[in-house]
Nucleic acid binder design. Structure first.
Length: 720
RNA sequence: GCGCGCUUAGCUCAGUUGGUAGAGCAUCUCAUUGACGUUGAGAGGGUCAUAGGUUCAAGUCCUAUAGCGCGCACCA
């Protein structure tokens, strides 16, 4: 027995050595496994892509959970003999990264984006992203991820940029991407548009003001935003509303809060006669529903708020005022004029931008959109919405837990065209060029003089949507693409089911005509012990610190046991501490087994078990069979707990204890049987536990008396 | 408004097709130069949110209610 077993297991010393050896041996690379005879050349494929962490900092507990789950699946399939590929990468995360770096620059130098300039800011962001990337790579390694590093990708590298340009061009050619002047979600703080999904609603309270535009105006209207009323071009009432029928079609010119406005009264089904006065002041420039009403009735669009969330209207009372001040001014004016009839408190959701926290202002802007309803000839007359819906309902993508299939379907029903252009600098530049009246959309820049590329960049999720196949070399027709796509599993948090899962399905079904993955396993959110969302300010647990303190294996066990898919988890350091002993327990079990079986080798076809031992073997085989079933069902939390309980409370507490007696006083045949039993069960327990606690099992395996032994990572999975 | 989830031991959570309530941590008692610096044996602790229903049998299935949480929509 090696002397190392005389001391307690030391994870900090062991883990980096083991990881480096796995990398050096090339076991993370499927080709190497085939070359070395560990995997059959014609073996079935198991592929998975890492959800690329944002290069906005370092990994948090959610990443630790994801990485562990993905590594468990990967290691399990590799041991099962699959040609296994797990591709790592990082995400440039566009707005998230840019606003992070802008924040740092502002804090340190007091400079804003415009002061720094595009080129310099991009340089600074690249430097930050590089640093963050390197930190993340180190952390992913620390967590034991058996990812194929030679295939590592970045959502903003050259190859992925080609994929983005190719996708954009194809979608434009098919009429799916169009440029349009519409009301979009504008984030005044980030100075960019954002998509519907990037809005976070917070509950707040507002005031509903009821008033008339002027003394002569026949209808009272109600609004929570009086300051926008200078942009009204219509008043909408329900077509069946008897109170207002006589006024429909009439037009009024009014002096309102220092501005001259023209309002036409229209009848529209969208109006709820029971809300407020049953009459809506229509502000087409600053409301999505009003924009639509205006489209139906041909009402003019009058913007009155600018990109800085200040009044742009030509009124001495309001011009250049901030929204809140303008609101107060209008209310004051209404009161002074005797027009205000009522003001009452009302619950109101406040729309804020996910990344910057800025209050979102709907503004009309010329932007690029993805049409989700257009029927596609080359996809059998189906729209992107149809393709997305059918991929889950009919084409075989299974979402775990299943209830999210309903959430997904519901989201698709409410889906509007996707605004993909952003007014930020860090990201994939929109591949469109302009020259006076000409517009050129292409994969490469147009030839000739005077072309100027679109200043905007694309929503980060546009490039993320291509991830399952852009990492495999698309648009080139690579062997990787043919071999590993569709991927088997996509493992990610349920919080990005719309952002990412849905967009990947959209891109893959449209561009490749196939699903991006067969199963989407959605994990829950990691929360602090008190249930609050994990953030650094609230003392979130740092996974890497936990690795250093308790060992990676302990951390991995702590995020697996008892945590099913889709459910949030309250994480505490106690929980991690609770599993640190397990690795050492395995270590000590091994010490006992090896010291009691000196000179003994695992005999491949040993069949002379004593009656007692044969029974124990049978019981263990039953565990193996249960594990096999539960692994296939993605019930890793059950497997981890089961193996933990078996190793500790059955194998150590019972089998090892009774072995002391047998090995001391038993017959030679019983001793032989028991030694074979101990070695055999320990060997198989190590194999079964390897995907969960890879480091300690590999380190022990090195000293196991097993003939024709390989590294544990490429050993074959036990069969029952 | 529509939809979803959760409610089980002091805490964090399991409980697969219905078949006598489980784990880890915490608490208490005893043992322990032991393979175990990170040990073992044992104990206490639960009317499984509430009320109905189905069933020979319900933590599990159905209905309703409550509390907590979440998603989507609305938000004049």
């Amino acid at each position: 027995m090696d002397a190392k077993f005389l001391k307690p297991y030391n994870p900090t010393e062991t883990e980096p050595k083991i990881y480096e050896k796995w990398v050096a041996d090339g076991f993370f690379k499927p080709e190497t496994c085939v070359e070395k005879g560990m995997t059959k050349a014609d073996a079935p494929v198991f592929s998975i892509v890492q959800p690329p962490p944002n290069v906005t900092g370092t990994l948090h507990m959610g990443h630790a959970l994801a990485t562990t789950l993905e590594d468990i699946m990967t290691r399990y399939h590799r041991m099962k003999g699959f040609r296994t590929l797990w591709i790592p990468g990082t995400d440039h995360a566009a707005i998230a990264t840019q606003s992070k770096v802008e924040g740092i620059i502002y804090k340190e130098e007091g400079k804003r984006r415009q002061d720094v300039g595009r080129e310099e800011l991009l340089k600074r962001i690249d430097a930050y992203a590089k640093q963050s990337h390197d930190a993340i790579v180190g952390q992913v390694k620390r967590l034991g991820a058996s990812v194929n590093w030679s295939r590592e990708a970045f959502t903003l590298d050259e190859k992925r940029n080609l994929a983005v340009r190719t996708a954009f061009k194809a979608m434009h050619d098919d009429g799916l991407i169009y440029r349009g002047y519409r009301v979009v979600n504008w984030d005044p703080k980030g100075q960019t548009t954002i998509s519907d999904d990037e809005i976070v609603y917070t509950e707040g309270s507002g005031t509903l003001y009821t008033f008339k535009y002027s003394k002569d105006f026949p209808i009272s209207i109600a609004t929570t935003r009086p300051e926008t009323k200078v942009g009204d071009t219509g008043v909408a009432v329900h077509p069946d509303d008897a109170r207002y029928k006589q006024f429909v079609g009439k037009e009024y010119a009014i002096d309102f809060a220092g501005a001259k406005i023209k309002v036409k009264i229209v009848a529209d089904e969208a109006v709820d006669p029971a809300f407020g006065t049953g009459a809506v002041g229509v502000t087409p420039a600053h409301s999505f529903t009003d924009w639509e009403i205006a489209q139906r009735h041909d009402l003019p669009i009058v913007p009155v708020i600018n990109e800085y969330a200040k009044m742009s209207v030509d009124s001495p009372l309001l011009k250049d005022k901030k929204i809140a001040d303008a609101r107060a001014a209008v209310v004051e004016w209404l009161t002074a004029q005797g027009l205000l009839e009522k003001s009452e408190p009302i619950p109101q959701n406040i729309a804020t931008a996910e990344r910057t926290g800025g209050v979102v202002e709907p503004l009309p802007k010329l932007q690029w959109f993805v049409d989700v309803n257009k029927k596609l000839e080359k996809r059998g007359g189906k729209s992107l919405k149809d393709l997305m819906r059918e991929a889950v309902s009919e084409k075989g993508i299974a979402i775990i837990p299943e209830r999210f299939e309903k959430v997904y379907a519901h989201w698709i029903e409410n889906l509007r065209d996707w605004c993909i252009s952003r007014q930020i600098w860090y990201g994939h530049r929109v591949p469109v060029w302009y020259r006076s009246e000409e517009i050129f959309v292409g994969i490469e820049a147009p030839t000739g003089e005077g072309w100027k590329q679109d200043e905007d960049t694309l929503d980060t999720w546009f490039s993320s949507g291509l991830w399952t196949f852009s990492v495999l070399g698309w648009p080139e027709k690579t062997t990787d693409l043919a071999t590993y796509h569709p991927t088997n599993v996509l493992e990610t948090g349920y919080d990005i089911i719309f952002f990412w899962v849905a967009r990947m399905i959209l891109m893959s079904t449209y561009l490749l005509g196939e699903i991006p993955f067969k199963t989407a396993y959605l994990h829950g959110l990691m929360r602090n012990a008190d249930g609050s969302k994990m953030s650094k300010s609230k003392g979130a647990i740092d996974p890497i610190e936990m690795c250093a303190k308790y060992g990676t294996d302990a951390l991995r066990m702590s995020v697996i046991v008892g945590i099913g898919p889709g459910s949030d988890t309250k994480m505490s350091e106690d929980k991690i501490r609770a599993y640190k002993n397990f690795a050492n327990k395995l270590w000590n079990i091994t010490r006992f087994v090896l010291s009691s079986t000196e000179g003994e080798q695992v005999e491949k076809d040993f069949a002379s078990y004593s009656a007692d031992d044969a029974k124990l073997v049978g019981e263990f085989r039953a565990i193996v069979a249960e594990v096999a079933k539960e692994m296939e069902e993605f019930k890793f939390y059950l497997v981890a707990e089961k193996l933990y309980a078996y190793a500790w409370h059955e194998f150590a507490d019972i089998i090892l204890e009774q072995s002391k007696d047998i090995l001391a006083k038993g017959s030679d045949a019983d001793k032989k049987s028991r030694k074979q039993l101990l070695l055999r069960i320990l060997a198989d327990v190590l194999k079964l536990l390897h995907p969960f606690v890879p480091f300690v099992t590999e380190e022990i395996w090195a000293d196991m008396p097993v003939p024709e032994k390989r590294s544990l990572i490429v050993e074959s999975w036990p069969t029952s």
